[in-house]
């Protein structure tokens, strides 16, 4: 974005950093500001590493984490683990989000389904994903099945909840307008109810992406033989904190990138919500 093109009142009295910060806030998510934050934290982290106050085995320095990353990449485990984990997250998310949207549309529109299922589904929501892992392993073994199950279950509940509530907030005037304009029930649903609920559905999907990563790692930490979560667990056995840090940072970056992509797609699809 062309920051310099914006007319800005001269505010020379503000210190330079504050000016930079307020400009950044004004132009929204520019790339520069997060980089400043990362550089700052990396700088602090390096200082701690250089000072030698904390033992490397407990809190590794940035360069140790970097070489651990290169090591995992060279021996190929990083690529395999990433592929495995991303595949599981994608499959689980796909199943959970699809079922969640469908169930949300049903409970949002059909009173019988709502009465039968809503109280039960609401009871399931507070159960943390990690508590499901033992059950999933008994049901599906330590293979892919249990991972898919835990991830899709977690995603399903969040996406269902948001979709359901989105359906409740469809403004009455939209429905009235549609009916006086001779819309059939089907057309009213497809071209009025769905778009009106779409912002909520997308909010749910965005949350679902974040939860897919959370629950995936929870599932991989116990009872898995590959994936980022498994590699974390393995690194613990060998007290390889450098590898742990590397894997944690990779998880963070992946999650943030996935969130950016979903947010961007949502903005394109629900374009009328902006401005």
């Amino acid at each position: 974005m062309a920051v310099t093109d914006l007319p800005r009142p001269p505010n020379a009295t503000l210190p330079r950093v504050a000016r930079v910060l307020s400009q950044g806030a004004r132009t929204g998510a520019t790339l520069g500001l997060p980089l400043i934050s990362f550089a700052f934290v990396l700088g602090l982290w390096s200082l701690v590493g250089l000072s030698g106050v904390v033992k490397e085995a407990i809190f590794p320095a940035p360069w140790s984490v970097w070489s651990a990353t290169v090591e995992m990449w060279r021996n190929g485990t990083l690529q395999t683990d990433l592929a495995k984990s991303l595949g599981r997250a994608a499959v689980g998310f796909g199943i959970g989000a699809t079922l969640g949207v469908m169930m949300g549309l049903l409970t949002g529109r059909v009173a019988v389904v709502r009465t039968l299922l809503n109280p039960f589904l609401n009871l399931l929501r507070p159960i943390p994903a990690i508590a499901l892992v033992p059950v999933a392993i008994v049901w599906f073994g330590i293979g892919e099945g249990s991972k898919y199950f835990v991830v899709s279950y977690t995603v399903f509940l969040t996406v269902w909840f948001n979709t359901h509530h989105g359906m409740q907030y469809v403004p009455e005037t939209y429905l009235r307008a549609a009916r006086t304009l001779g819309a059939s029930k089907l057309r009213e649903f497809a071209t009025v109810v769905l778009p009106a609920a779409a912002p909520h559905i997308f909010a749910g999907i965005r949350l679902g992406v974040a939860l897919a990563f959370l629950s995936l790692v929870a599932a991989e930490l116990s009872g898995a033989s590959s994936g980022i979560g498994f590699r974390l667990q393995e690194a613990r056995q060998y007290v390889r904190t450098d590898r742990m840090f590397s894997l944690l940072i990779i998880l963070g970056i992946l999650g943030a990138l996935a969130d950016l992509v979903v947010h961007w797609i949502g903005k394109k699809l629900v374009h009328w919500e902006q401005g």
């Binding site: 009235r176 307008a177 009916r179 071209t191 009328w272």
Partner: peptide
């Protein structure tokens, strides 16, 4: 007995569909 296209309504808040 219910809304019909024979009776048109203009609402104060326009009720235009923002996605169209």
């Amino acid at each position: 007995t219910g809304p019909s296209p024979e009776v048109g309504v203009i609402f104060q808040q326009y009720a235009l569909f923002p996605w169209f």
